[in-house]
Design a binder for these strands. Structure first.
Lengths: 206, 206
DNA sequence: ATTCATCTGTTATTTTTTTCACATTGCAGC
DNA sequence: GCTGCAATGTGAAAAAAATAACAGATGAAT
């Protein structure tokens, strides 16, 4: 499996799944591309194309079977049963992210959190054990964690990132506004709150 | 001014400015597209084209004048001196976002925060006054706030969003994983942490 | 059983975004 | 003042993404 999919499609698949997860308890067993598109401000064509790309075939009259859809998206974008994630930086943002992940029913699983503050260490945060950052190398290696979330202050970003990469991390979700210099085989995804805000500021119409 | 720019370009312009803001204290007065591109994992062509689109002309030998660049980006993507922003939902995430914005030197300015929790109300959070959500309509209207950040729990998302829109908000940065149904003239930007994580999970290579 | 409206699956088209390629420019060094 | 290297500026090409268009399928209605 695991065909080469466009990044945008992968993003949307994740969104479809999460939306439909809430939907599946309702009466309907099927959903039309129109409906799904309307719920997500997309076009029906876009939805159909995405589902076509993962090989899902819907019923020409009833639409797509919701549970089949959820299952196939899982087969396509998930890896093992659950993927381990480390989080570095237990501030407000770090805590918020842990809470988010825990509440969602993703297969992403935060198994360790790190900070330099010794007061935060050796506790549990929403079930996640917190360690001192100096132990990150060992724990990430031992637990074979591949994905890290970076929520440290900007001044610690570069150093922490390089520590994470040395420990075997392959993908980073970077919340700091610092631009990280990573080797090409590392998947880096930046999220920059200020940029998003300024984009909104530019595009809103009075 | 305010020509029609591609959304991606606007995003990058915001990033250029923030990066160079840190740079401008250094010795160099100019920067080459190569250098800027390398710092941000972009291509030099992309940088040059973005700058071309806003009408910035660099020196063929020395590159782009940093302060001219910062100034012109400001003229292009900023509106007035500062743009007022409201934030709804003073949890960990809300606090983190307020901190982020305050530390960055953007012209975006969070002038009011709202929550239902009466304990959080009538205090100040990093200088931002906190009000009960019931006052949002009045305050947003009186202060002519146009942009809102939504960091409430998912179950309150739809209701809060519609309250914000009724109060005159034109653009929303949505951190809840709930999909909001907004009229076409509203600029909505969703940010979905889980989706980003799952995207990383899909694209990392072992 | 047949018609019909409507939805899917997919090819074609358009639009957007990125990359390529290269003529042009400006400064350093001779 | 030349000469040449190393930038920029930009049209053209390519790639990626979104949209349109429509043939074929299917269940509902008659």
């Amino acid at each position: 499996m695991k065909a080469k999919l466009p990044p945008r499609t992968v993003e949307r698949l994740s969104i479809y799944r999460r939306l439909l997860d809430k939907y599946k308890d309702l009466d309907e067993a099927h959903i039309h591309s129109h409906k799904l598109a309307a719920l997500l401000n997309l076009t029906p064509e876009q939805v159909r194309r995405d589902l076509m790309l993962i090989g899902l075939t819907g019923n020409h009259r009833k639409g797509y079977n919701i549970s089949a859809l959820i299952g196939l998206i899982g087969d396509t974008i998930d890896r093992e049963e659950s993927q381990k994630v480390a989080l570095a930086g237990i501030g407000n943002l770090g805590k918020a992210v842990i809470g988010f992940i825990r509440k969602s029913n993703t297969r992403m699983n935060v198994v360790a959190a790190f900070d330099i503050d010794k007061n935060k260490v050796n506790t549990r945060l929403a079930g996640v054990p917190c360690y001192e950052i100096s132990q990150a190398g060992k724990i990430i290696h031992d637990e074979q964690i591949r994905i890290a979330i970076l929520t440290v202050p900007p001044e610690a970003a570069a150093e922490t990132a390089s520590l994470l990469l040395d420990s075997g991390i392959k993908g980073i979700l970077n919340f700091t506004s610092v631009h990280l210099d990573v080797p090409p085989h590392i998947y880096l995804k930046d999220y920059d709150i200020i940029t998003s805000l300024e984009e909104i500021g530019f595009f809103i119409t009075d």
